[in-house]
């Protein structure tokens, strides 16, 4: 085996874990996103710590996935606090091939890295989650359907786009202007008031348990946290 695993982390514990569990592979470490971007050519597999000193690992994965030179690379995210299905789904949606809370089980981590590298060192295909599942809330981006506890939600096209945008940006504070730009897009006649009305409608349709996760941050925008 002569494949390279690039480990991007400022945490010596994460780097040591990668070296110890990936014996037989060449493991190179980078202490920051900046140092990694400077040297990496898109080869091998990159294990990226969610909490880098200069950038979040989730943002770094999204950036790499968006660039032609690195779009097909194998990217594994680790860290980022306690595991939750919601956190994992967001990592996958940002483009991670795998996600492990830290520390992962060493044998499982090694097996998964070898399995990914065994595909020939490139990503199999552009994969997005077929369905987001957060407890009783299930959202299928392709079929454009959303269900809570088995009952289909009746959403307009715009409300569905809004829900998807919030799911993909969980935990991020989204301003009204950002929503107008990213979700309403061409419809420039809409204003902040239209956003508020539509969010209110989306909350109602999501029901009490999920609607309450879509919080207003007074004077700033909205945040969706599951």
């Amino acid at each position: 085996m002569n494949q390279v695993v690039h480990c991007v982390t400022a945490d010596p514990g994460v780097a040591a874990f990668a070296r110890a569990s990936l014996t037989g592979l060449r493991v190179r470490s980078y202490p920051s996103a900046g140092r990694f971007l400077k040297s990496w050519r898109g080869d091998g597999l990159a294990v990226i710590d969610a909490g880098l000193p200069d950038m979040s690992g989730r943002d770094l994965v999204a950036v790499l996935r968006g660039a032609p030179r690195t779009a097909g690379s194998l990217l594994v995210l680790t860290g980022g606090g306690q595991y939750s299905p919601a956190a994992a789904a967001v990592c996958f949606d940002n483009g991670a091939d795998e996600y492990f809370p830290f520390p992962p089980d060493p044998a499982l981590f090694r097996a998964r890295v070898l399995n990914l590298l065994g595909r020939g060192g490139r990503r199999a295909a552009a994969e997005k989650p077929a369905e987001y599942a957060f407890g009783a809330l299930r959202v299928s981006p392709e079929a454009r359907t959303a269900r809570v506890g088995g009952s289909a939600l009746k959403l307009t096209a715009l409300e569905f786009d809004l829900l998807l945008y919030f799911l993909r940006n969980q935990g991020r504070l989204v301003s009204r202007s950002m929503l107008l730009e990213q979700v309403w897009r061409q419809d420039s006649s809409a204003g902040a008031r239209a956003v508020d009305k539509r969010i209110e409608a989306l909350r109602r349709r999501l029901g009490r348990s999920f609607g309450s996760k879509l919080r207003t941050v007074f004077g700033l925008g909205y945040i969706f946290k599951l």
């Binding site: 950038m55 943002d59 999204a62 935990g171 989204v174 950002m178 941050v217």
Partner: peptide, 10 residues
């Protein structure tokens, strides 16, 4: 010191 994508996690 950092590079943060919008929308960001506050």
């Amino acid at each position: 010191a950092g590079y943060v994508l919008k929308p960001f996690d506050p």
